[in-house]
Amino acid sequence: MSVFSRFRNPEPIGPLDYTRRLWLQITVALTLFFLYAPIIGLIVFSFNDSRRNVVWRGFTTKYYEKLFNNEVLMMAFGNSLTIAIVTTIVSTVLGALTAYVLWRYRFPGKAVYEGAMALPIVIPEICMGVAMMVFFARIGWPSGLIWPFNLGSIMIAHIAFSFPFAAIVIRARLESFNRELAECARDLGANEAQVFRDIIVPHMKPGLIAGALLAFTLSLDDFVITFFTSGPETVTFPVKIYSMVRFSVSPEVNAASTVLILLTLVVTTIALRVQNRNNMMSGGH
């Protein structure tokens, strides 16, 4: 990929060897720089011992200490994790059921049903955000409940936009399932619940894990919809970061962002590994 590779393999560049052409390598390198430099800059300068953000003044972790001693921020982090965990569990269950129904059955109005399931994925976030805001105001959703019940409205909204995503991932996994296996189990006397539990779910498992991780990152990352659903005492991590960003650019925000990047990176890596193993397994038979 790099310029140096031209020195290692001196064969002439073939007509379709576009990747080994210098101008294309430079374009790719510049694009990747454009994509990564701001994020890497943000992470690096969260360790910078200076409030003025652009000059390196030595390594420090004091902004992380500040971060972990900042009670409001830590509470927002706790809220975000709680919401993400509940969202993950419910979305995975609902997503698995949706995927199962769409995969197994033919029923009247199926196309419309599938279209409706895709709606939360395609409509602009802002529309979903204001819809949730109007909905909870209109039905008089109680405010001021004790923790964690005060997060209920955010969880409901997050589940509503996450489970269709989970359903897509899980359904993709089900496509590789041999339907005859379920038929066999039924012929041998297993009832529907047993077939689902003992035959379908074990096959679904990698899809379930991938769907769960997707729901987790979607929930953890969401700002717009949460912003319209949350009240003053139900602040999540992105909402808190947003109010800090509006206020100023500071190393604390960099540190908080770095923590969130790290968390999503870990979850994404696990998800990609699961998916990879998935592909290899389905490629096997």
Binding site: P38, G41, L42, V249, S257, L260
Partner: peptide, 22 residues
């Protein structure tokens, strides 16, 4: 980068573009 939080990516751009930014 698509998996990184949208808010954080936008914030990273603020640090690049602001008056005394990168």
């Amino acid at each position: 980068p698509f998996w990184t939080n949208l808010l954080i990516r936008t914030y990273a751009l603020i640090a690049v573009l602001r008056t005394n930014g990168f």
